[in-house]
């Protein structure tokens, strides 16, 4: 059964190309275009991994990540921050409890390898 990946991003174009990229790679993709929806979806869908943009309407990415990591039912889910902001994203990602980060525009190979490594561990 294909792994479920939740992508939370307010950019529909990005959601679309990312969905195609990950679907073709064999993942089941669920998307949310704001933080609140993303958080609810995470709870309901229980994805295997979350790709999280930091600049989100309603609830920003940082808070979403923190809430996920505070939620006992969700905190086991790896969160990879996907951000266009180049401002010390590494530090930022670590500070909010994210597991990894990828800078936009991402290299497809880099993104896929970072996702895969969590599932290899699981396997």
């Amino acid at each position: 059964m294909a792994k479920k990946i939740l992508i939370i991003d307010d950019e529909p174009n990005i959601l679309r190309v990312a969905t195609i990229r990950l679907s073709k790679a064999g993942y089941e993709v669920v998307t949310a275009n704001d933080g609140v929806k993303g958080l609810e979806l995470a709870k309901t869908v229980q994805p295997a991994l979350i790709l999280l943009d930091l600049s989100l309407p309603e609830l920003n990415g940082s808070d979403v990540c923190k809430l996920i990591k505070m939620d006992d039912k969700l905190k086991h889910i790896p969160v990879i921050v996907l951000s266009a902001s180049a401002e010390s994203i590494k530090d930022k990602a670590l500070s909010i409890g994210a597991d990894d980060y990828v800078i936009k525009p991402y290299e497809p190979a880099e993104l896929l390898s970072k996702i895969e490594q969590y599932f290899y561990v699981k396997k």
Partner: peptide, 8 residues
Amino acid sequence: RTPLTSIK
């Protein structure tokens, strides 16, 4: 970067 992401 954001539009560039989807273009790329």
